[in-house]
Structures are given as C-alpha cells and as structure tokens.
Design a protein around this nucleic acid. Structure first.
Lengths: 220, 220
DNA sequence: GTCTATACTTGGATAGAC
DNA sequence: GTCTATCCAAGTATAGAC
C-alpha cells in the first residue's frame, strides 16, 4: 500500500490532513464539548501537529465553524431526502422522531448546542453560528408547512413561529438529554407524539398538497 | 462612611466578600458565559483578589455552582409566589410569558443554559447541575398539573412528559435568543400563546381544582 | 481575611528547519 | 505540508506576608 511522503505515522488520515482536522473537530465537539475543543486536542485526535490547525484554518474558531458546516451540510441533505417521503402528520412525526434520535445518538445535536452556547464567550461567533442555523430553521418551516399554512391551525400561528418553536424544542431536549446522558425522556416524548399523531391527523391538522378546504372531494 | 479594615478599595462589596464573589459569578455567567467565568474575571468583577475564589470555594466550579444555586433559589421563590394567583390557562400563559421575558432580560435563563452546556467539558459538573434542575422541572410539573392531569388532555400525555417538554422549550428558546441577542421571536411566540389561550380555555383544556369530568359531580 | 508572589499547566499563535 | 521549537498570554492553585 502507498505511504504518504513523510515519515510520520499515517494514523487516521489518508493524505488529507485538512479533512482529518475537520473530522477530529467534529468528534471532539460532539463528545467533549466546546471548551475542550482546543487546537492541541483536536490535532492530537487527527494525528497531526497542533500548528497545522493554524496553517489550514488560521484560528481554532474557524476550524470549529468548518466542523459545524460539515455536519450541517450532511444533516441538511439527509433531512431533505427523508422529507420527500412524508405524506401525513404520522409520517412527519415518525421522521422527526427518527431524526432526533439519530442526532442525539451521533452527537450532532450536541455539537450544534455546544457551538451555540460557546458562542456566548467568543466575540463574533454568535452571528457566524446563527448564519449556519438558517438552513435548519428553513427545513423546519418547510417540513411543517402543511400544518402551519394549510391546516386547521393555519392562521392561528405563523409558519415562522412554529418552526422557531420546533427548533428550540429540539435544542432544549438535546441540552437536557446530554446533561446526564439520559435520552429516555426525550425519546419517550417523541414516542408519545407518534401515538398521538393519528388522532391529530384525523382532526384535520394535515392537509394534502392542493387541498385547501374540506368542501371539495376532487382527487385525494 | 465606614471603610473596611484593610486599605483595599471598597468596590462593590460591603464587608461580605464571599457574597460579592457569588454575585460577580452570577453576573459573569449571565453576560459573558461559562468559558469566560474564570477565577480572575470573577474576582476582578467582585473587586477582590483571585486567590479568594479558592479560599472561599476551593475551586472555580464550586463557585459557579454556588452562583447557580443563588439564582435558582431566587427564581423558585418568585415562581411559586406568582403561581399562587393562577386561575386558568390564560393566567398560566400570562405567567409563563412574564417569567420567560424576565429570565431572558435578566440573563438568568442564559446562566442556566451556560452551566448546562459547560457541564459537557467539566467532569462531574453534569450531575451537579442536573440535581439543581430538579426544582425547575417540579415547578413546571406543578404549574401544568391542571392541564396534564385534570383536563381534556389528561391521559394523552403524562405530566412528567409535558413538564420535560416545557423546560426544554424554555431552554431552547433562550439558546436561540441569546445567539444574536434577538428576543423578538421568543416573545412573539408567547404573545401568540397568550392570544390563543382563551380559545383553549373554552375547549376544556383547563379544569378547576375539583372538577374531574363533566359526567359526575362526586369528588375524586 | 485579604493581599502579593509565584509555581505549574495549558492554550493560541508564529518561526523556521526539513 | 508537516514537524519541532518557542513565545506569550491566561488560567488554576498554593504559600506566605500582613
């Protein structure tokens, strides 16, 4: 097998140190948190020298933002893919439950929360993180659109409001779950929602693509 | 005016350095975040020497926990006082909106979130914070009790589940608000809830102290 | 109780050899 | 591109003077 030029141990990186650093940063943020995500720790996990963090990213914060970008992009793709198959409130709750469980398990949700909370003590990080949060809010708004703008609830609450609340709930549940590693309460909540979804579905909370009022029996 | 014994500047502390340190820690956690809450920063704000943190609290973390205790106790008292006057869903939403706006404004919610998120990178802090979170969850459960156990929703979801979700939403909204200092979305959400409350009230979501079901007038 | 001084550690960032 | 070496700043914690 081919070795990289220098004599350093090949470790976890196959010729792409920059990517190895991003991956390592993701890993550290996920499991050790923002405060532990130092240049030395991350570089150590990537199997390379600490100075390379600055060579590639200029600063630690920029590396962490790159890590956030990485998972955000992955998640966004997966979410939108999954959303395509949703045809009712039951489906949507199933999807939300699955997504949340995955993000909780993988630590992706934790990473996001750490970056948000860490932004408080790093000037300028707040706006950068917020910009990267926009896609998540948009995804939530899109997913909830059949409820917020075409259902029986339409007009009672704005789509943006519902999306904001949903993202907040997602983050808050992660925060609590991560506190003691107990994901049971959050998962139970989604399980409950899953069981309640059919009821709400029948009550007219979800409407199909082109159905605006229950008066016409055109095509379903 | 009386001066304290030594020649140091009287600053913000009137003879009680320990309390001044706690207050300063509260202040720093509120506005600068967990990562900025170092012995030097806090002691500086308290107007005393950095070494006194260790003299009084043994470690920085223990000082921060004392700060968390301080605000938790204050909040708990205020909440329970306010809860006494609640007589319907409308009242409850008003109370929640007011409490949340206050906690957002004062930074108390931010302090809690910072401690939770910071716990990730400090071994042992997680359980300590969780223990201090129990009263908040209990308060939420008590406040929501008329909805979760005696209303039309009773049986659909457990009281613990609803309380957990409520606390999570509270924390998540703070997280988002603090990100860019924009509290508008969160406040708009509560404003919306406030307007919707009367509707839900009429729909039977709230029941009085001794009303258990519309069929029997016996006591439960 | 409070301060000064200091030991020790860790982290961000740069310079320069290879 | 990667490493070693190093500088400097900041943090925790302790010792000891007052």
């Amino acid at each position: 097998m081919r070795r990289t030029g220098s004599a350093s141990r090949p470790s976890a990186r196959a010729g792409n140190t920059r990517q190895a650093l991003v991956d390592a940063a993701v890993d550290v943020l996920r499991h050790e948190g923002f405060a532990a995500a130092t240049a030395r720790t991350v570089a150590g996990r990537a199997g390379c020298n600490q100075g390379l963090v600055f060579y590639y990213f200029g600063s630690v914060v920029d590396l962490l933002l790159a890590a956030l970008d990485e998972v955000s992009e992955q998640r966004r793709r997966r979410y939108e893919e999954a959303l395509a198959g949703v045809g009712g409130l039951g489906d949507l709750v199933d999807l939300a439950a699955r997504i949340f469980a995955e993000d909780l398990e993988s630590g992706d949700a934790a990473l996001l929360v750490e970056m948000i909370a860490g932004a408080t003590s790093t000037p300028g990080l707040g706006v950068a993180v917020k910009a990267r949060l926009v896609p998540w809010a948009q995804f939530a708004a899109a997913a909830l659109e059949p409820i917020s703008s075409r259902s029986a609830l339409a007009g009672l609450a704005g789509a943006g409001e519902i999306a904001h609340a949903t993202v907040a709930l997602y983050l808050g549940l992660e925060l609590l779950s991560h506190l003691d590693g107990d994901t049971a309460p959050a998962l139970a909540l989604f399980e409950r929602a899953r069981r309640l979804a059919p009821l709400a579905d029948m009550a007219g909370l979800w409407t199909g693509k082109d159905q605006t009022s229950p008066t016409t029996t055109e095509e379903k």
